[in-house]
Design a binder for these strands. Structure first.
Lengths: 235, 235
DNA sequence: CGTTGTGTTGAATTTGTTCAACAGGAGTGG
DNA sequence: CCACTCCTGTTGAACAAATTCAACACAACG
């Protein structure tokens, strides 16, 4: 694991701790304690943070940047499960589950990560059970997202899935002009299709005047109703 | 919601409480307390336990029977997300997440369920935070299962997904003769395909001598290696 | 300024769906 | 126990959707 360790500049870690949902409800003193347990690492674009078939003994909290969580099928195909951004955490599955992960985590851009040891976190949770509740909330959210993706992959065609992602991004970014948080190749992997198909479908959307593509990762929604109608029963 | 309420026969509820992973680590007295908070309901095959667009204020613990959790797409297609059996719980997503569920839950056979009110459970968790840890463990397991299904739906063809389900069932039932825990129609919905395709693929598997179908829901694996080879890179 | 990664387009092929007809079992009431 | 119906599962054939392979264009980055 190539990475760069920083010295323990407390200010930096407090920033990391005080902002994230799983810790930000604690008081100053408690956060200071947590900050003292944290280590910082930086990953370059493309660097792998953890791999399948390893047991993870840390919780990783993203400070800046983005990380894609994915699996590789034996045939070599990459399926992205989710993309994590600032304030989200990963490595959690082996925390409450003694098993090897089957996931890969890779920085898709320069990413700073706060690392806390599994044992330290377990002690923290014992002292402050409210942390467990925050993690439960986040797990709920992820499970709901996973369920959503399962439904889409299992029951919707590519056009619908693509329209759905664009709408979700538009809602999240609170704008009709959407910036894709990943390459189109990765977008394809996330919604279970290929680069080529994404490219073709976006061209079709644009031909119909429903969207406008500007540059490689910017899409402006011109006809939201049409996109929504994809997600609500066909044509 | 059609259902049948029973009187509070304590013995019955203790049985329900003392067996389930989220409570079975507690002592006798604590379990008795929980038993006093529980109500029992019985659902017939096909009865809907909860529907999308409702807020669920109970945790449901399955005592006997089976429940399918699914979503309906606007086009009317049913996507099964998971099938729950004895000792598993549902309704959890709105416990830690103030939102309407998008899921449906339906008994696929006669099912007895223990119901505990959301508020009661929250009080219990405050008193015994270890319950939250058990729920976290279960959430971990579900998230891992969901991730597995996402990978399969997104990256594997139907033959692979089907082989994979059969292998999983064989492992779970510790036998080469597998009894499907659901109709083939539901199996199709779970792995994101149609009844017809399942039927065809199983016939193909049988023609090749890899499996033998006995009755409607019993499959004997004759060539495990071949099935496994599907899941590990193609042909 | 070239190299590499990312995205686009075309054409052939594959995979799976859909619709339709039919077969078989399970449960119900007579 | 039989007859009936409903539900589940099977099979065929036409069709639709998306993948694959291949060639090329464009952008970003050193």
């Amino acid at each position: 694991m190539k990475c760069h360790h920083h010295g323990n500049h407390n200010g930096e870690f407090e920033l990391c701790v005080s902002k994230v949902p799983i810790f930000n409800h604690l008081n100053q003193e408690e956060m200071k304690e947590i900050a003292s347990l944290i280590q910082s690492k930086t990953f370059k674009k493309g660097e792998v943070i953890f791999s399948a078939n390893s047991s993870i003994n840390e919780l990783f909290i993203i400070h800046t940047g983005r990380v894609k969580i994915y699996r590789l099928s034996e045939s070599g195909r990459e399926q992205i499960l989710r993309v994590l951004e600032a304030k989200e955490f990963m490595g959690e599955l082996t925390l409450f589950n003694e098993s090897l992960t089957q996931n890969y985590a890779e920085a898709t851009e320069k990413t700073e990560i706060c690392v806390i040891q599994k044992l330290d976190l377990q002690k923290l949770i014992e002292k402050k059970p409210s942390i467990a509740l925050r993690i439960l909330e986040e797990f709920s959210r992820r499970l709901t997202n996973a369920d959503q993706l399962i439904q889409q992959l299992g029951s919707a065609d590519v056009e619908t899935r693509l329209a759905s992602v664009i709408i979700d991004l538009s809602n999240k970014q609170i704008s009709r002009t959407v910036t894709l948080p990943m390459s189109k190749r990765d977008l394809a992997s996330l919604i279970g299709t290929t680069q080529e198909t994404i490219s073709r479908k976006l061209s079709t959307f644009q031909e119909h005047g429903w969207i406008k593509q500007t540059g490689q990762r910017v899409i402006t929604i011109l006809n939201m109703e049409q996109l929504i109608s994809f997600t609500e029963g066909k044509k």
